[in-house]
Design a protein around this nucleic acid. Structure first.
Lengths: 339, 339
DNA sequence: TTGAAAGCGCTAACAG
DNA sequence: CTGTTAGCGCTTTCAA
């Protein structure tokens, strides 16, 4: 019967148990576990490591959090994790957080301002060390976080907002990328399917579409507004198809909408890109597997997620309430008319 | 200048501050905040509520967790949150957890056993009150959780496993539903695109496919194995199309694979369901917007998520290590040949 | 109905 | 190099 036959105290093994087993003080156990702040003699360290292994000790995170005032956790608030774009974002944020030893608390606001507020409040109470927020608002209310001294960063944000730290892409420039490509295919009547949001100013993608059109001396095409979803796109597609001057090309403000538009177009027996060309926004995998595959503006999700997390937990935690803008690129596939 | 002009002590407001402000003891504050365990005189309660509001007090979750031994948090480990099926699941689990006042810590194993283990270990250290696990294994290693006394439930699980608490659907019966429908359309050569998993026994969906075939006196169609992804389905589709006896119908073990198959079929200029019919599994929204829309077996994601969470946090927390099986239904759309 | 006080497990300053 | 110890903010028993 070896020493490992010690009757493992069912239930929590504490630092004290380890100390007793190793014949040292609890402080030493801390030093070993955390690699500091004091050095420990190799022999002692070995004994402690042994005790930890034998006893199956795992530090109590709650106690640690209480003591340090940090839970090594960050919160994420997104509109809807079942939307492919956001689920990709969540995954990326989780990866980035895990990379730094942080866990991710995920919450969905389902597009509701009230729910978003409730989640933020809840995260603040849970002493998360930071929150990544893909808000439904352009300037969300962050007081709860502010006076708990929890930094926040707005993810998927269109533009700099005073007093906020944010990361996103240049929506207007990105939209122009797509629309200009469509123009390059010879289209002169380019419609827009734009997502509705709670922000009060006009979406950058709408501005970009308009700019590309006017820069090319083109008339403003038909425009339809609706939810950022497949169903929203479907409805938008139907309306665009039956509009008086039916466009020969459409720019959709999200891949989801484009997917819906595609359905509407297929149902109408119209061909893409033959009769109507299509380009969209996000660069989600789903856009690669639609038929035809969607030409879309890719957002650098991974890079943005990493930037967001590092704004929260790096040495520059909470610093620089600026806006970090990431470059996008046009993923050219078939829906635009390219071979 | 009203009483709210008190200089809000920047930084954490503690229970003590509230007590002092309200002129009561800290215990009373607790009673008020938690609605017990003692009753408080209405007048006192009002004073305390007031102090809480004025001071902007929010209980420190870490301290509470330390004291109570519960973090009011549950952990979720899934293979990949960017897979639509799992992202829907995550959302549902988050909803169910939030419903009970629990927060959700999300982690992705990315199909790696090592990563799954690491996440489980980490969640255990964080004193989560339970973990929902969509494992890559049929019988994952849960010792870390066991000896931290943390209940776990296997989600999206195919079958009862001794000693585990699990919830899922009857994969074989569900697959039969789809395959029989295909047979009803007159198909006699029905292929299978099945996802590979780390479990060592054969996937229920494969058994169901086989059963349906043999029950109908049909020969076993071609079978292709690959990842549960769009890309995996695409490759599977290509192989199925070029197989010696090309099937006239295919059953795919997930919507993602079916989407990939659809691409392969389209690229080959073959028509669905005209030349090849298709049915799949999961019932994700994406399957509703493919072209043609996919006939698919719907999994009751919401119900399963709720069952999983309530097995963890209800009064029957950790009890009954049984398997709860949920009914599926066939969502009939166009890919199978129905009008 | 209210208050005092003992810890929950951990970290780190301080003392040896 | 190692040990002692004072709390972190909270809950809850026990006493008033």
């Amino acid at each position: 019967m070896t020493s490992s036959a010690v009757n493992t105290p069912r239930g929590p093994v504490t630092r004290k148990d380890v100390a007793r087993y190793a014949g040292v003080s609890t402080a030493v156990v801390s030093y070993v576990v955390n690699g500091g702040p004091k050095r420990v003699a190799p022999a002692t360290e070995a004994k402690v490591q042994d005790a930890i292994r034998v006893l199956g000790y795992r530090p109590n995170a709650a106690a640690r959090a209480l003591k340090l005032g940090s839970s090594e956790t960050i919160g994420l608030v997104i509109p809807d994790n079942s939307n492919p774009f956001f689920s990709l974002l969540s995954h990326a944020v989780e990866d980035a957080a895990a990379e730094c030893g942080y866990a991710l608390v995920l919450t969905n606001s389902d597009g509701s301002v009230a729910k978003e507020r409730r989640h933020i409040r809840n995260l603040a109470a849970r002493q998360v060390d930071g929150v990544v927020l893909a808000s439904v608002l352009f300037e969300p209310d962050l007081v709860e976080l502010d006076d708990a001294d929890i930094p926040a960063v707005l993810l998927n944000h269109g533009d700099a907002a005073p007093g906020f730290s944010s990361v996103g892409v240049d929506l207007a420039a990105s939209a122009r990328l797509a629309v200009e490509h469509l123009i390059g295919h010879g289209h002169t009547n380019i419609g827009l399917a734009i997502g509705t949001n709670t922000a009060n100013d006009v979406d950058g993608r709408e501005r970009g579409w308009l700019q590309a059109l006017s820069d090319a001396g083109l008339l403003e095409g038909p425009i339809v507004r609706g939810p950022f979803s497949r169903a929203g796109g479907y409805a938008a597609g139907q309306r665009l198809l039956s509009s008086a001057n039916r466009p020969t090309a459409i720019f959709a403000s999200s891949d989801m909408q484009a997917i819906g538009i595609l359905r509407a177009i297929h149902e109408a027996g119209i061909s893409v890109p033959g009769d109507i060309a299509l380009a969209s926004f996000d660069g989600s995998v789903e856009a690669e597997y639609s038929w035809p595959a969607l030409t879309t503006v890719e957002q650098p999700v991974k890079a943005m997620a990493e930037a967001a997390v590092s704004a929260l937990v790096g040495e520059n935690r909470g610093k620089g309430a600026g806006h970090r803008q990431f470059p996008t690129r046009l993923l050219i596939r078939q829906s635009c008319g390219c071979p």
